[in-house]
């Protein structure tokens, strides 16, 4: 086949993306910049000066950052452990890690409600052993959202990290040790920097996922709004599509900014990654 005909293979996908993604996105962003036919930033200034919106934005970013950090903190050692296992053990543990992804997030959120609620498992247990007198309010707080989101996104970071870590030649760790590095410093100076590419991709997936997640924050957050639930409220309940579009555009911008920052950081830690 001639080379130029090969481009034809791209056409169906390209057409689909243009029609159902690029156009709607452009329309969404475009609609936020005009009011009564006049070019204006008023939709944005209106939000960015609104204390209620800023609080929601702050909560969303906090929840997303905490989720990402906790996922990395839990995922990194687990991924390293899995990556060192023989193939059989590796596939069993990876399958177990991915298992939560196979259940609906609605079902999962409801089970967390049972666990975290006022009469839930945790409160009953803590009161039972006398550690607390009054039940803690965990459900319907940002903490509950973070717990639910960590549960949801941990597999993503595990998969990306295991993929990168199993490609690190074990000779490198042995070489570092032979040069005087302890196990820990060999891990810190060799395994960690070489895992940065996987860490960045995993973190971006978790962060963006948390930023845009709807079901989990809606069910576990109660009255506590995040951007995605706020967007839904504006669009469906208040029927204010212009406001909803502006919120959506801001979400996109935040996502791009965060990805850019993370890539910068990656380049610094691992210049040849």
């Amino acid at each position: 086949m001639k080379k130029r005909y090969l481009y034809m293979l791209l056409m169906p996908g390209l057409l689909f993306l243009t029609l159902f993604m690029i156009f709607p996105l452009a329309a969404t962003v475009g609609s936020t910049l005009f009011q009564n036919g006049q070019f204006t930033f008023s939709h944005y200034t209106q939000f960015l000066t609104d204390a209620y919106f800023l609080e929601i934005l702050g909560t969303t970013l906090l929840v997303s950052f905490m989720t990402t950090i906790i996922c990395v903190a839990i995922g990194f050692p687990v991924a390293y452990y899995i990556s060192k296992l023989p193939p059989r053990g590796k596939s069993i543990l990876l399958a177990l890690a991915i298992f939560p992804l196979l259940t609906s997030s609605v079902v999962r959120s409801f089970s967390w409600m049972i666990v975290l609620g006022k009469n839930g498992l945790i409160n009953n247990a803590l009161m039972g052993i006398g550690l607390i007198q009054e039940p803690l309010s965990i459900l319907y707080t940002p903490t509950a959202m973070i717990i639910g989101l960590v549960h949801l996104f941990l597999p993503l970071i595990l998969i990306t990290l295991v993929g990168v870590m199993e490609n690190i030649n074990h000779d490198l760790v042995e070489a570092a040790q032979s040069l005087g590095a302890s196990r820990f410093s060999a891990f810190r100076k060799i395994v960690v920097p070489l895992s940065i590419p996987g860490l960045i991709i995993g973190s971006i997936l978790v962060f963006v996922g948390s930023l845009t997640a709807y079901t989990t924050p809606a069910l576990l957050g109660g009255k506590q709004r995040v951007i995605s639930t706020f967007l839904y409220q504006n669009a469906i309940t208040l029927n204010d599509w212009n406001a909803a579009s502006a919120i959506a555009t801001m979400m996109m911008i935040i996502t791009f900014v965060v990805i850019a920052i993370m890539n910068k950081a990656a380049a610094k830690f691992n210049p040849k990654g």
Partner: peptide, 17 residues
């Protein structure tokens, strides 16, 4: 790491980063 022996590997094992 306490032996102070130098090691040269078949795979070279240079730190790529």
């Amino acid at each position: 790491n306490k032996r102070n022996f130098g090691l040269v590997f078949q795979s070279y094992a240079l730190f790529p980063h």
